[in-house]
Design a binder for these strands. Structure first.
Length: 270
DNA sequence: CGTATTCCCTGCACGC
DNA sequence: TGCGTGCAGGGAATAC
């Protein structure tokens, strides 16, 4: 499932194939993704040169002079640059044709993803109000401390709120809290500045590490499939309820926090 | 405004 | 073997 590191990996993998290339056509096989694909995509994109491939939060932007294609992979989406002759498979919803030899193909079984349009000089409503990038200078413990004052929601819910910081989903929230020794249940407003510094450092370290590992799958980006393998092996808390805590050996607890399954160590995380 | 809940969708792991 | 059930996930929409 694409988390921020996978989206960043996708961006880095696509950029050399797309930047400078002209979109020669658009094929819509299933326009009803999470939202309908707006008419601007087939109307304005053909003939445009892709100037840059950018990422904001978990969104990808393909910039052209006429506007930007805005893509989200949802939780099951994938983007691949393939030879034009590649047979269409189930859930291949959209193709951006890149001349006669290559195609950018969007596959998304669950259709939680989207393909939208952002006019030049505008910021799409979905991108307004987003918090800072977790790997930028704007994100640190002092920032989290300031934003959390007076909040009673669990710190895990707070950390997963994209208005606070983008790109931290259920997996990385659980991992970062375990690493920082903070209980996911603790009200966000009752975490000290010092501990928020540890949490911000943990978020940053885990995401940077995952991106570095995702980078290893860049090479076979054109291959039929390259599922990133860093996931299961290196996780300390996520999905490990009942298993021993990697730090103290006591069994990890598991419960719903903000409607999300959450595992944590009742001893190491306070 | 902050918080809690529901829903979207499909594939897969279950248990019977 | 085949069926039904429940869960997973990001995040918008809705309801307080």
């Amino acid at each position: 499932m694409p988390e921020l590191p996978e989206v960043e990996t996708t961006r880095a993998g696509l950029a050399p194939h797309l930047e400078g290339r002209r979109v020669s056509g658009v094929v819509l096989r299933r326009p009803d993704l999470r939202w309908p694909i707006p008419p601007e995509v087939p109307a304005l994109l053909p003939g445009q040169r892709i100037l840059a491939v950018r990422r904001r939060a978990k969104y990808l932007l393909l910039d052209t002079a006429a506007g930007s294609a805005l893509l989200h992979l949802g939780m099951s989406g994938s983007l691949r640059v393939l030879p034009s002759s590649t047979p269409v498979r189930e859930h291949d919803h959209v193709d951006l044709l890149l001349g006669s030899r290559r195609v950018l193909r969007f596959n998304d079984p669950r259709r939680f993803g989207c393909l939208l349009w952002q006019a030049p000089g505008e910021v799409h409503p979905l991108l307004r109000g987003l918090g800072p990038e977790p790997l930028s200078d704007a994100f640190d413990g002092d920032y989290l401390f300031a934003r959390s004052r007076g909040r009673r929601a669990p710190v895990k819910t707070f950390l997963m709120d994209q208005r606070i910081v983008v790109g931290v989903g259920n997996i990385y929230a659980a991992e970062a809290l375990h690493r920082a020794g903070i209980s996911p249940l603790r009200p966000a407003g009752r975490v000290s500045r010092e501990r928020y510094r540890a949490l911000a450092d943990a978020v940053r370290a885990i995401l940077a590490h995952a991106i570095a590992r995702g980078g290893t799958t860049l090479r076979d980006f054109l291959a039929p499939d390259g599922a990133p393998g860093y996931f299961e092996q290196e996780l300390s808390a996520y999905g490990r309820g009942g298993e021993p805590c990697p730090r103290c050996g006591r069994p990890l607890r598991q419960a719903l926090v903000g409607q999300r399954t959450t595992a944590w160590c009742g001893h190491c995380q306070r």
